[in-house]
Design a protein around this nucleic acid. Sequence first.
DNA 1: CGGCGCGGTGAGAGCGCTCTCGCGTAGCGC
DNA 2: GCGCTACGCGAGAGCGCTCTCACCGCGCCG
Lengths: 345, 345
Amino acid sequence: MTDTAPRPTLEAVAARAGVSRATVSRVVNGGDGVRDILVERVRKAVDELGYVPNQAARSLVTRRHDAVAVVVAEPETRVFADPFFALQLRGISKELTAHDNQLVLLLTEGRDDHARVGRYLAGGHVDGALVFSLHLDDPLPELIQRAGIPTVFGGRPGWSGDRREVVYVDSDNRGGARDAVRHLAGLGRNRIAHITGALDQTSAADRLDGYRDVMVDADPRLIAEADFTPAGGERAMRELLDRCPDVDAVFAANDLMASGALRVLRESGRRVPGDVAVIGFDDMRPVAEQTDPPLTTVRQDIEEMGRLMARLLLRGLDRTAPQEGVGAPPSSVVLPTTLVRRGSA
Amino acid sequence: MTDTAPRPTLEAVAARAGVSRATVSRVVNGGDGVRDILVERVRKAVDELGYVPNQAARSLVTRRHDAVAVVVAEPETRVFADPFFALQLRGISKELTAHDNQLVLLLTEGRDDHARVGRYLAGGHVDGALVFSLHLDDPLPELIQRAGIPTVFGGRPGWSGDRREVVYVDSDNRGGARDAVRHLAGLGRNRIAHITGALDQTSAADRLDGYRDVMVDADPRLIAEADFTPAGGERAMRELLDRCPDVDAVFAANDLMASGALRVLRESGRRVPGDVAVIGFDDMRPVAEQTDPPLTTVRQDIEEMGRLMARLLLRGLDRTAPQEGVGAPPSSVVLPTTLVRRGSA
DNA sequence: CGGCGCGGTGAGAGCGCTCTCGCGTAGCGC
DNA sequence: GCGCTACGCGAGAGCGCTCTCACCGCGCCG
């Protein structure tokens, strides 16, 4: 733990290079409109002095921070500890880094924290926000809307509000679910069950809708509500076996629940995919490839979702001036999914 | 995506409250030495105007940022996608939030990125850094040392350098490993194998050392090197069965590998813990509780590690003035582990 | 040959805040 | 009742940067 040394200022560089502060500033910010000779001289002085611009001073006048907040509203531990979020974060990080932006992570714990986050965002510490708001009744989107800060949501926010200007990035949950169920039907299955995710999340609701799109008049007993956890998947599967012992296929709203379902099916003496075909969602490699049999699942490109969120946000902030006439605010994007066939269906 | 409105300044609040800027500043920063009447009046003005201090302006003069960088050096995707890191991050976040500090996340991808991180840290954007440097040959610690910024490491950095001033938080990997192996020995096992983690990480090396502490003259064939992944655990277990079919216990350096080992043992027709007892490390609940049988394992309190890292760092930055004579720089902390008995040993 | 335009540069005015000083007022002792 | 301390408050000077604007010298046109 060393203390930080006094850092050279613009002034110092200017003195050393024999030019004015303004010129050094110009060079540091790209060097347009400065003679090459001077540019070189200034660069040299910068190197020699090890000059690094003071971001605080810069922000003070530019009102930009080159920083973006990533807000993760996570009352339950669950989602945070799963690879999903990590991958998305990674995508975000890559994109932000590529555009010289910093990532400020805001994790919320409980309701009181919302206020803190709202204050922070409204406080003008960051240029924009990427928000993962998972639950339908989450007050966070409201708060953020009020903060008046450019925002892109991860996943369609379940929002009662009438705002149309919400920008989000999501997977085609409904379409992916349809593909999965159709695939099961294509295998000749007709007692196709669905294990839902937590239905207060739009992803779960959308996947359920996709299931219903195909199974228009499905036996309601074929639908078991769960919560995206392996344990929830097990519980739901037991319920299903109980209610409909003749079930011959299961579409689980994520891989974790599918893995739980597989376990229960095995316990019950059923063979997969022989007796019961199983499909998951997410294509979480570590899970999907390790199950027995390996899981057929609906892949979404999670890292790409993160990258896209960041890209949309940055575009919205339109750095680099409104040159290309891309003035239009970015609109939401729904990424396609693909069915990945492995052993379970 | 709304644009941010013009924000009220200290000046505005001062005018409204009928006091000077200085007084408002005092109130905003705690209100010491200001009459209660004025404090109240200023607070009211602040509320009415929705005043939020401009952090950039403040940092410019205080040279503090109330922000801490969390650096995750993660060449491989693996660790990032596992719950371990997420939990630690959560602990960090909680502690930082409690002290009104922001968390700036820096993920590195590949070697080139190290320079960027170094520049950022040296650039005085944050007050300190929490660094997860996992590999022995990682150049990051060096870089950071050079940046001259207060730093706490997550896990003992494997460092050839002769610096003694490195501060880190780690689990008692060696002690935990000893406990695990002793427990197995206590069950009467004497052909106790070890599946190591990636040995270029100190945690893996330390656990191996702990194993050796107990198994002083262990058959070298009882040690299989792996990489902390389930697949690696499977591979290692197969190797072990191949080399020593009479193995009667396995201590795996983490739960993920233990779960892989369990799978292989089951495949080979062995019963756990009857024929072979198995112990993992980490106590990653979702994994350890879901295996069949549930995994006996060495628990480390990961979230607490994160919290502690943040606490040490903040203490090192000694906000709140050096009042309590805690002037001494914080030193490293090694947290104890506990053996959690479940079904597998 | 005078004026005009233009690219290149520097001077200077802040951005919004903190913090040091110094002044005014109140409270204390003698 | 006077001086002294202590406390509360305001004035003002920056923190390090950006950005506007005016200036200067040059080449060019009329």
